[in-house]
Design a protein around this nucleic acid. Structure first.
Length: 278
DNA sequence: CGCCAGGCTTCTA
DNA sequence: TAGAAGCATGGC
């Protein structure tokens, strides 16, 4: 039986380098991509669903055309950035050199600010499989149904709910945090669009007005949702990395891209048994 | 049963 | 103001 291709389905391919799709989608920065039996991945971002696979240096997007690629996925996968050059600089540090060598294809995704905020509120004192489950139920319960699944629910879709409405999510004490975030964003008390450009200290102060948002969740929101690459979220793993490998502090010359360095270090510390962490 | 999970809030000294 | 306890849920 010959395999058939739906010729009406949109498809777009793009040449990539320094790019490892699986590592990017499963290094703990995003929670809405699922692996399919054929090795490709399916997910939704910016209200658009996508199937994506990688064959060597070719990225194959199914369900997306050139316009989708240029308006959403190019920036989502940070394809305009020269990671080769960036890694060459970061690798002057011996620990970063090993971390980069362990997973050289990691990139920082540009997710939606609201989704990043909400996702990392859910992440606190939680583990990644359960974070994924809660977010999936959040989208299925309150997100708009689109072709291929459910969009991430908007703040407006959540702001009038109460804690009992969120019971199906089984997100525990985080329910009140999600609702406070939705309300503050929906009313404009927190302006996510401003976070892209205002001074970092102001952005952090804005975000930490939300209940359940501390320094770590704020920095994750800014890094993964607003492209603030100088943000360096410190979770339990990165805390261990800093204590163990950088007792005199993280080198200042890398802080402009500290968030990217952080992602290599996070994945390395969490997944590489030989990383030498104590 | 206890311990832990990409933290944060609240309580206590 | 630093440090510990408490927090919902689920996997092990």
């Amino acid at each position: 039986m010959q395999k058939t291709v739906n010729s009406t389905e949109k498809r777009y391919t793009f040449q990539v380098s320094d790019f490892d799709l699986e590592a990017i989608l499963y290094c703990g920065q995003c929670f809405r991509w699922d692996r399919l039996p054929n090795g490709s991945f399916t997910g939704i971002a910016y209200g658009k669903s996508l199937r994506v696979s990688q064959q060597g240096d070719l990225l194959i997007l199914t369900g997306a055309d050139q316009n989708d690629f240029e308006t959403v996925w190019r920036d989502y996968f940070d394809l305009g950035r020269d990671y080769g050059k960036l890694k060459a600089q970061l690798a002057n540090d011996p620990v970063l050199k090993k971390a980069i060598g362990y997973a050289p294809g990691i990139r920082i995704l540009r997710q939606e600010p609201w989704e990043a905020l909400c996702s990392f509120i859910i992440s606190q004192n939680n583990n990644i499989p359960r974070i994924r489950g809660i977010i999936a139920r959040l989208c299925e319960t309150f997100g708009e149904q689109i072709d291929g699944g459910y969009a991430f629910p908007s703040p407006g879709a959540l702001c009038s709910l109460d804690e009992s409405d969120l019971a199906p999510l089984r997100c525990g004490f985080r329910a009140k945090y999600i609702l406070d975030a939705a309300r503050q964003v929906a009313t404009g008390a927190v302006d996510l669009d401003s976070l892209f450009k205002i001074p970092l200290a102001d952005a952090r102060e804005t975000l930490t007005k939300i209940k359940g948002v501390g320094p770590k969740v704020a920095d994750c929101t800014l890094l993964y949702g607003c492209g603030r690459l100088e943000c360096f979220p410190i979770d339990v793993w990165i805390r261990k990395v800093l204590d163990c490998f950088y007792p005199d502090g993280f080198p200042v010359e890398y802080i402009a891209f500290g968030g990217i360095a952080q992602q290599y270090l996070f994945h390395y510390a969490r997944c590489c048994p030989e990383c030498g962490l104590k």
